[in-house]
Computed example of a mutant assay.
Amino acid sequence: MSDSDRSPLAQPHWGVTLPLPGISIGHHRHIVEALPDLGYSDVWTAEGSGTDVFTPLAATAAWSPTLRLGTGIVPVFTRGPAVIAQTAATLAQLAPGRLLLGLGSSVPAHVSDINGIPFEEPFTRTRDVLRFVTRALRGEYVADDFDTFSIAGYRLPDPPTEPVKVILGALRPRMLRLAFSEGDGAITNLLFPEDVPKILDVVGPQPVGKELVVKVFVCPTADKDHARGNARPFLAWILNREPYRRFHEWLGNDGLLREVHAAWDAADPESAQKAVPDEVVDGLFVSGSPEQCREQILRYHQPGVTTIQLYVSLPPQALSSQETVLDVLRKLGPAAG
Rank of each mutant, 00 (worst) to 15 (best):
L137S: 05
P56Q: 02
R155C: 01
R125C: 09
R125L: 13
G139T: 00
R127M: 02
I84E: 06
S106F: 15
R98S: 10
S150D: 02
L137I: 03
R127P: 13
A85K: 02
S106D: 07
T55H: 14
D145W: 06
V142P: 04
E47Y: 07
P118Y: 09
L91K: 03
V76H: 12
D42S: 06
T134N: 15
A152H: 03
R155T: 11
I73H: 02
P108T: 03
L103F: 15
D158C: 01
L171G: 04
L130S: 05
L137F: 11
D42R: 11
A109T: 15
I73R: 05
P160V: 01
D113L: 13
S41H: 11
P118H: 04
L101Q: 05
F54T: 06
R138G: 13
V74D: 03
E47I: 01
S49C: 06
D128K: 02
I117K: 05
V76T: 13
P157G: 11
D158Y: 13
E47T: 08
N115E: 02
D144F: 13
Y154K: 00
V111G: 08
P122G: 02
L69C: 10
L69G: 08
I73K: 00
I151H: 01
R155N: 08
A62V: 01
V142Q: 06
R131P: 03
R135G: 01
F149R: 05
L67D: 02
T55K: 03
A95M: 09
A61S: 13
P65E: 10
S49L: 04
I84M: 11
G80Y: 02
S112L: 04
E140M: 07
V76I: 13
L103K: 10
R68W: 08
P118K: 08
T66F: 08
G116V: 02
P160K: 00
A89W: 07
G104W: 09
G80T: 10
R131N: 14
P65L: 09
D113Q: 03
S105K: 13
V164D: 12
L57E: 07
A61V: 08
P75A: 01
G116A: 07
L91S: 00
D52R: 00
V76W: 15
A143V: 01
S105A: 15
P118S: 12
F54Q: 02
A152N: 08
L67C: 03
A143G: 06
T161S: 04
L57F: 14
V164P: 14
G48R: 06
E140F: 05
G70L: 11
I84W: 14
P159Y: 10
T55F: 14
V111M: 01
A89Q: 02
T51I: 09
P118W: 00
L69Y: 11
Y154G: 04
F149C: 02
R127T: 00
D147V: 12
A88E: 07
D42E: 01
I117R: 03
E162W: 04
P163L: 13
V111I: 15
T134C: 04
V133S: 05
T161Q: 11
L168T: 09
S49K: 05
